[in-house]
Design a protein around this nucleic acid. Structure first.
Ligand SMILES: [Zn+2]
Ligand SMILES: [Zn+2]
Ligand SMILES: [Zn+2]
Ligand SMILES: [Zn+2]
Lengths: 168, 168
DNA sequence: ATATGATACGTTATAATATTACATTAATAA
DNA sequence: TTATTAATGTAATATTATAACGTATCATAT
């Protein structure tokens, strides 16, 4: 199992997250002969600001502020498509939003734990889950190609915030 | 495990699906003191035309044709919200579409197998999957509230259509 | 039966998300 | 250089979803 759950839900040195992500991104581009342009890197950095997803139009606003000039939706969707293609980010279907991938190198299919209170999203790559889903599909003669697994609830932080604290 | 996979992917008496669904719907409404109005029933029937999901604007077109008068998006979204609330239908986030629920009576959390070729969607309620996800969330101290599990690939029909038939 | 309040619906406008098409520029290859 | 491909600029439009407010219908109590 591979997850960034601890990182997401605890105070941590986020610059390390960013640096690791950028390094991965550049090495992946080198490997696949893909071009990490200024816009694409900016969008990736914006998505790495935090462990929360951003929608296309939030990215538009932020990039436009960053570049100090108007940016069209197409620009965002292009950058996002590029990053999705390399597996550097993921799309959260239920949120119409995009999130940076904490382990873009590994082959994995993704499971997201989405906090409906604070908006944080942790990613989990879990072989047992994936194996089980594969088995289910096999039994149904369904040829599994890809998946979107999104779990909603409260992250550790938000769970404990909402706890009954009368027992102190 | 509970699934309508066989039904969805094989020729079957679909009128039975429809009748069972309508009966469930009415008994659920009775139980919960909810009103199954004409519009709501129409939308439910439209979603039961097949085992494929429909988008809000497809429903709008079809309902408007059915009633022979214009129907506004709000009308559709209201009906859909009502049906979602009763668990009579589900929303497929990755498709922005709605699908009839084959077993609305049972408490279940849903897993969908979506055929990217023919568009059919089968639903699976699987205790082992749900238990496993619950365990994962417990370990991460994540309070699981709900989930959206969507699998993409080829259904049995479409898989065999695409098979290499040279070995015969 | 009639008044009351709650629910559902009609209607219009608008917000939010995503794609298309085509012109222009920049990078790479021949 | 020139040809070719890839990326971006720009404008328009398509698709999905919600908001606001008035009207009609239904349930219930008097
Ligand atoms: Zn971090
Ligand atoms: Zn949280
Ligand atoms: Zn059927
Ligand atoms: Zn269901």
């Amino acid at each position: 199992m591979l997850t960034n759950s601890r990182l997401v839900h605890q105070f941590h040195d986020h610059d390390r997250c960013i640096n690791a992500a950028l390094a991965s991104a550049y090495s992946l581009c080198a490997e696949k002969n893909a071009r990490m342009t200024a816009i694409r890197e900016s969008v990736l950095r914006l998505l790495w600001q935090s462990h929360q997803p951003l929608g296309a139009y939030q990215l538009q606003d932020q990039l436009s502020r960053l570049l100090n000039k108007p940016v069209a939706p197409a620009t965002i969707y292009r950058a996002v498509d590029f990053l999705l293609g390399l597996g550097l980010i993921h799309r959260i279907a239920s949120l119409n939003a995009f999130i940076s991938c904490p382990f873009p190198n590994s082959e994995h299919s993704n499971l997201f734990m989405i906090c409906t209170d604070c908006g944080s999203v942790a990613e989990v790559a879990h072989n047992t889950v994936n194996g089980l889903l594969q088995t289910i599909c096999d039994k149904a003669n369904f040829t599994l190609q890809s998946q979107s697994l999104e779990l909603f609830g409260q992250c550790p932080q938000c769970s404990s915030d909402g706890e009954d604290s009368s027992h102190g």
